[in-house]
Amino acid sequence: MNIRMLCLTGVLSLAGLSTFPAYADDATTRSARVYDTYCAQCHGANRDGNGINSTAMAVKPRDHTDTKGMGDTPDEELRKAIKSGGGAVNKSVLMPRWDGVLSDAEIDGLVSYLRVVSKSGSK
C-alpha cells in the first residue's frame, strides 16, 4: 500500500513536472523544490499565479510564466522582491519577504529559475 502510494506520488509529480521547461541541471531541480515549498501556495503549481491561496487574496500573485512581463523585470528587482517583499519594490505587501527563511544563494537560485520558467533572459 505504502509502496503503491509512493509510486503513484512519483508518477504524479513526474507528470506535473513535465509541464515545466525541461530540467536542465541539479540547480534547477533544487530551485523547483524550493519554489514548490514556498511559492506554489500563492503562485501556483503551474507558476501562473493560480495557487490554492490566490482566491483569498486582494492582489493576484504574479504570473511567472508571462515571458513579456517577466522579461521586462530586471534580475535586481526580482531578487529584491523575493528577499525583502513586494513592499520593497513598490508592489503589494501580500508578496511576503523571504530573507528570514531562504539564504541569499537560494534566492539567487530562484531568480535564475524564474528565467527558466518564464523563458525570459536575465537582465
Partner: peptide
C-alpha cells in the same frame, strides 16, 4: 486544509482557475 504538507495534496489547475486540494 492541505494536510501536513500542502504541496503533496495540490491538484494543479488545468484551466487557469485556482489550484485545488
Amino acid at each position: 486544509p492541505g494536510g501536513v504538507m500542502y504541496a503533496k495534496a495540490i491538484k494543479a489547475s488545468a484551466d487557469k482557475t485556482a489550484d485545488t486540494i
